[in-house]
Simulated assay, not measured.
Amino acid sequence: MGQLHDVGQADGWRCWLCDEPVDPNMPPNDPRGASIDTRITKARAKKRKQDKKNLPSERLAHKGCNTGKGANDPVVSWPDHLIVADPAPIITAVERLERKGGREIMARCPTREDAEAASVWLVDRLSRLAPGLEVHTEIATTGGQFLVNLCT
């Protein structure tokens, strides 16, 4: 339980996939119980090989979220309450920003209010998803739509 406790403490006892709280006292086979997800995508494995750094590869996940993901690359979903068109894959964008920095277009929104809500959610979510990555958002107006850009 030592390793699980350490990973849980580091992630604030929140599932890195669904961002919901994880109860450390749940039985280990319960879908809402705690488990460790080894979060190594191809990009992170390549970076680890090149840099020889000890990058964090273990994250806390619900047993059900971790099992549902399986051996596939993780997907962090945009919430249903946000009105966004063409949402970018969050994990892919974050990995690119970690590698190269710069700016990523994350979504198109029909109104400024929708873009602001998406921006607030995105920065908050990334503060737990990739805590070492300093990001902010910019909202650009283009052709009657509002683009949410994620910047390092």
Rank of each mutant, 00 (worst) to 15 (best):
D30Y: 09
S77D: 15
T111Y: 06
T142G: 00
V135M: 03
I105N: 10
L150W: 02
V84Q: 10
E20C: 03
I36E: 10
G2P: 01
S57T: 13
P89A: 08
V76Y: 12
E104T: 05
T41Y: 04
P31A: 02
P79M: 09
D11Q: 04
W16S: 08
G68R: 13
S119C: 01
T142Q: 13
N72I: 00
W13S: 06
A93R: 13
A107Y: 03
A61R: 05
I105E: 14
D114F: 01
G101C: 09
I36K: 06
N72M: 01
S77H: 14
T41G: 11
R44Y: 06
A34V: 03
F146R: 02
G33Y: 07
D114S: 11
R103P: 00
A130G: 03
E134M: 11
P74S: 10
E104I: 09
C109L: 07
A115M: 06
G132V: 03
E104M: 14
V120S: 06
P131W: 07
R128K: 11
K47R: 15
C18H: 09
W16V: 15
D114E: 09
A130W: 02
P87M: 08
P31H: 09
E98R: 15
L4W: 04
T111S: 15
S35M: 08
I139W: 09
K42H: 06
E20G: 03
V7E: 04
H5R: 14
G101E: 09
K49R: 14
V135F: 03
H136I: 01
R48M: 15
L133K: 04
P56K: 11
R99H: 13
D80Q: 11
D86Y: 07
C15F: 07
H136P: 00
P89V: 01
I139D: 09
H81D: 15
C151W: 00
P28L: 05
G102F: 08
D23E: 14
L133E: 06
I83V: 15
R44T: 14
Q3T: 12
R99C: 10
L147S: 04
K46E: 11
F146D: 00
L150M: 04
D19S: 14
H62Q: 08
P56T: 10
T38P: 01
I105V: 12
Q145W: 12
H136L: 00
L97I: 03
R108Y: 13
G102M: 10
D51M: 08
D19Y: 05
T67P: 00
L147D: 14
L133A: 03
W16A: 12
L126N: 10
D114T: 01
R48F: 06
D73N: 15
A34K: 05
Q3F: 12
